[in-house]
């Protein structure tokens, strides 16, 4: 009798352990999917930027410096992102710098009414600003997933399993210094 009770307990604990493990795997997969989605949008941004710069440079003759910075930021982001399966600090910083320089370009483009009349430019602007949004939302989803996963990894009893099977904490994508500086430097818009 006692034997069966002990056996039953062991089986029950086993099942419980498996379900905890599976939960961690599910959360970790979601984090990986989140990063993959960010990556898709980052690549799309790399592809769109040269087209946009090419089509606005005739209109924005006085902004060659800004355009050069955008291209430079794009190239260094491509380089930093190459071959990273998970976010590295270097690639996150490079992407943030790119976001900041694009933000400047968008703000400056407001000064050129001719740009508004050009349909190709407008389409590229919509695509690029939507891609910016998508990166933002993908980052939000990634950070939420990573937070849920990290909470699970750290809390009892999941941490027993996480420690044994090598579930490491995921890195959050914080707003980096370059981007924060750009946000603070952005002109205040009075909507009234």
């Amino acid at each position: 009798m006692a034997f069966w009770i002990v056996l039953g307990l062991i089986v029950a604990i086993g099942f419980w352990g498996v379900s905890l493990y599976n939960r961690l795997v599910r959360l970790k997969t979601q984090v990986a999917n989140g990063w993959a989605q960010i990556d898709v949008q980052l690549k799309r941004r790399y592809d769109l930027i040269p087209n946009l710069v090419e089509s606005v440079k005739d209109y924005m003759g006085y902004e060659q410096e800004t355009l050069r910075q955008v291209i430079e930021a794009r190239n260094s982001a491509v380089k930093a992102n190459a071959g990273t399966a998970t976010p590295s600090a270097a690639s996150l910083n490079a992407e943030s710098a790119l976001t900041a320089s694009l933000g400047r370009l968008f703000a400056l483009s407001e000064n050129y009414p001719n740009l508004k009349a050009n349909e190709t430019v407008q389409q590229l602007m919509e695509e690029l600003s939507s891609t910016e949004n998508k990166i933002g939302f993908a980052r939000q989803f990634y950070n939420d997933s990573a937070t849920a996963y990290n909470t699970a990894v750290l809390s009892f009893p999941d941490n027993l399993i996480a420690g044994r099977f090598g579930f490491e904490q995921a890195t959050l994508w914080q707003v980096a210094e370059a981007e924060r500086a750009a946000v603070e430097a952005a002109p205040k818009v009075d909507l009234r």
Binding site: Q30, Q41, S130, N133, F137, A138, F141
Partner: peptide, 12 residues
């Protein structure tokens, strides 16, 4: 289409 895709990404 862009707005729908943005929201789909936000919802995962």
């Amino acid at each position: 289409h862009n707005v729908v895709e943005e929201m789909a990404i936000a919802a995962g």
